[in-house]
């Protein structure tokens, strides 16, 4: 099957030495977990995982043209 394109956005210190936003290609139905590990993150570092503006689990499967946003545990108020 043809690979899918997913836009990955990184925030806060996740950007350091990586990127802000980039399109990556994956096998269809790839799980958020595999994308995260593939970028060299530990799962424990993840604060917020969003797909298309909705909170998502690590098991969530990604589709063509999804946007995956990854935040460390940060906050404000």
């Amino acid at each position: 099957m043809a690979p899918i394109t997913v836009t990955i956005k990184l925030f806060a210190h996740f950007r350091t030495g990586r990127f802000k936003e980039a399109d990556h290609q994956f096998p269809p139905g790839v799980a958020c977990r595999d994308v995260i590990l593939g970028l060299g993150f530990r799962l424990g570092e993840m604060g917020i995982v969003m797909v298309n503006g909705h909170h998502a689990t690590l098991d969530h499967s990604l589709n063509e043209r999804d946007t995956l946003a990854l935040f460390p545990l940060v906050g404000g108020g």
Partner: peptide, 24 residues
């Protein structure tokens, strides 16, 4: 705690702009 120990000291409360933007 990662929020009070690291996140807030580094980026201040303004780290929320991108989070709230992303969440709509």
């Amino acid at each position: 705690h990662p929020v009070s120990g690291q996140g807030l000291p580094t980026y201040g409360t303004n780290v929320l702009v991108n989070i709230l933007h992303e969440a709509g």
